[in-house]
Measured scan of single mutants.
Amino acid sequence: MPVRRGHVAPQNTFLDTIIRKFEGQSRKFIIANARVENCAVIYCNDGFCELCGYSRAEVMQRPCTCDFLHGPRTQRRAAAQIAQALLGAEERKVEIAFYRKDGSCFLCLVDVVPVKNEDGAVIMFILNFEVVMEKDMVGSPAHDTNHRGPPTSWLAPGRAKTFRLKLPALLALTARESSVRSGGAGGAGAPGAVVVDVDLTPAAPSSESLALDEVTAMDNHVAGLGPAEERRALVGPGSPPRSAPGQLPSPRAHSLNPDASGSSCSLARTRSRESCASVRRASSADDIEAMRAGVLPPPPRHASTGAMHPLRSGLLNSTSDSDLVRYRTISKIPQITLNFVDLKGDPFLASPTSDREIIAPKIKERTHNVTEKVTQVLSLGADVLPEYKLQAPRIHRWTILHYSPFKAVWDWLILLLVIYTAVFTPYSAAFLLKETEEGPPATECGYACQPLAVVDLIVDIMFIVDILINFRTTYVNANEEVVSHPGRIAVHYFKGWFLIDMVAAIPFDLLI
């Protein structure tokens, strides 16, 4: 008679799926529990143990900040960024110097990925580790590398530091407007667009060049630039800015003055950032001319202004700041037409079709709590990747769950009947059967004279019903998954307890 339990259901295979997918890609990662103190490590794979030199037993239950890997060259700011990422709910990448158990130093890129439950609360953290440099290539500990984003994938490793954006290309926007319009339909740009040429040739750093990471940081200074100062900065030398009595002219307006920039070969870094931020506020060169004239017309309804409409929906549905990093990277690809469009465009503009998908598509409701890094690593669709929660398995109709209350009560009843059979069957065979043979035949009273025979008949009927119930009862397979398919249940029961239950259900007393 089957006594099969499996009270692990309803099970959740999400954690096993993450481990299996990460292991298949030869990654070095740990999984931490966000619900406990210090976000203790609950799993670390073999790749991480080989990377740091510690065994799994030495890593388990330690804080996922990996303070046991810190050393003299470990930056405090990087460690603080990892700790801050564990307090938030967004994906974050941090470069930090770690030390192995043998004392060797290596520069590592740590990717902190939160995993949320159905309520939107962070319950786990996945920390992925990628070695960037070994100890002989690690720089000085005073050099802070965590304020910069990861290198873009479309640049060669040897040319990542030679990417320079020439400031004269930004200063000569109005001069290039006529050349853009003359391109017409034969050019790649839309009317009114501004073409910015980027020099990728390796050259020595000069005062006129600005690194790509500095251009990325310009967006942080746009908020500090007032509207009046932006307007004066875009007017140009024809209309000098008016300053109040006793007030000095704005240095932001002076930063885009061609006369002032041409007199000296070098520009201050602050002026460069502010000038680029001011130019980015204009949607095209037409807006710059309109600002000089004193009238700013409404933005025209053409394809170039609607190019950012799908980007707005993608940004609203993005799951991490990696989408913004990807957008900034692609927006700086050289030799393309940049349409400086305000994100607050007309909502009635139709979304044009684009061959290049900048932001990841909208994630469906079932995966809105899973970050983009987890979705990318697992390579699963929205119909396959579940949320991290207890999910009731989908069972067929008329199927009994093996952990249901009805099955528990039924098993206790069958257990009592088995005990009765084990006690009274030998007793009936030894004593009652002998008395029946010696006594007179009682054929007239039937079952009324033999109450134990009636009980034995009921017990046999219950055993037959138990066999039928076992054909529709779920079970737990070797992978700790609840199986509810009727065919698989029948095959599993035939290979197991079916023969024993059938022999126990045969009414031998009635056959004798």
Rank of each mutant, 00 (worst) to 15 (best):
C64R: 01
R148W: 07
V215C: 06
P150K: 13
G192A: 12
L155T: 14
V384T: 14
T375W: 03
R62G: 14
S153H: 06
L378Y: 03
R56T: 01
L315D: 15
E357Y: 14
V115S: 03
F163A: 15
G236E: 13
F348A: 14
R77K: 07
I18G: 01
A89Q: 10
D259L: 08
H302Y: 07
H70M: 11
K135E: 05
T337S: 14
S255T: 09
I31T: 01
K101V: 01
A204C: 05
Q247L: 07
L15Q: 03
E134M: 06
S140C: 07
G139P: 09
P237V: 13
P157F: 15
H143Y: 14
V122H: 06
A80P: 01
R271T: 14
G24I: 06
I123N: 15
F348C: 08
R5C: 07
S313A: 11
D119N: 05
Y54G: 01
A293F: 15
D197A: 01
I30P: 01
D287Q: 12
D213S: 06
P72Y: 01
C64Y: 05
P227C: 01
L248C: 15
K362P: 06
G24P: 03
D287T: 09
V41L: 04
F68T: 01
G294Q: 13
A290E: 15
I30E: 01
V222S: 13
P297G: 11
L107H: 14
E274W: 15
G345A: 07
G306Q: 07
G103Y: 05
R328H: 12
T74W: 01
D144I: 12
E289M: 14
F348I: 13
A142T: 13
V131W: 07
F29S: 01
Q61Y: 03
P10H: 10
R271Q: 13
H221W: 10
S351I: 14
K373F: 14
A142R: 07
A260N: 12
V59G: 01
D287L: 12
L171Q: 15
I19D: 01
S104T: 14
M308G: 11
Q75C: 14
W154G: 05
V222K: 15
N257L: 08
Q75V: 05
E91V: 08
P241D: 11
P297M: 05
R326Q: 09
D342G: 15
G187Q: 15
P205H: 05
P386C: 02
D144F: 10
T329W: 04
F125I: 05
R164I: 12
Q61M: 09
R281F: 10
R271C: 13
I336A: 15
K161E: 14
V194I: 05
N146H: 05
E130T: 15
F29K: 01
G184Y: 07
D321F: 04
E95V: 08
G314E: 09
V110T: 05
D259V: 11
A268P: 09
T216R: 12
D219F: 04
P240D: 13
E134H: 14
L170V: 05
M137H: 15
L15Y: 07
T145G: 08
V8E: 12
E58L: 02
V3T: 11
R181A: 14
S153F: 04
A57E: 08
I19W: 01
G189R: 14
D199P: 15
K332E: 14
R148S: 14
L343D: 05
R56M: 03
P249S: 04
N339L: 01
R164S: 12
R20H: 05
S272C: 07
P298C: 13
V384I: 07
R271K: 09
G189Y: 01
R77E: 13
A121H: 10
H7E: 14
L210D: 08
R312N: 11
T367H: 11
S304E: 09
G183W: 06
V132I: 14
S304C: 12
P150Q: 14
R269M: 12
V110G: 01
L316F: 07
S209G: 13
H368N: 11
R356E: 15
V59I: 11
E372K: 10
F48M: 01
S351A: 08
I359A: 14
R252A: 05
E37I: 06
R76F: 12
S255L: 14
H368E: 08
S261L: 07
V222H: 05
D67F: 05
A277W: 11
E58T: 01
V110A: 01
G345F: 04
L324E: 13
P258L: 12
T353G: 12
S266T: 15
H302R: 09
S354N: 15
R328G: 14
R281L: 07
P298G: 12
A204W: 11
N33P: 01
R292H: 14
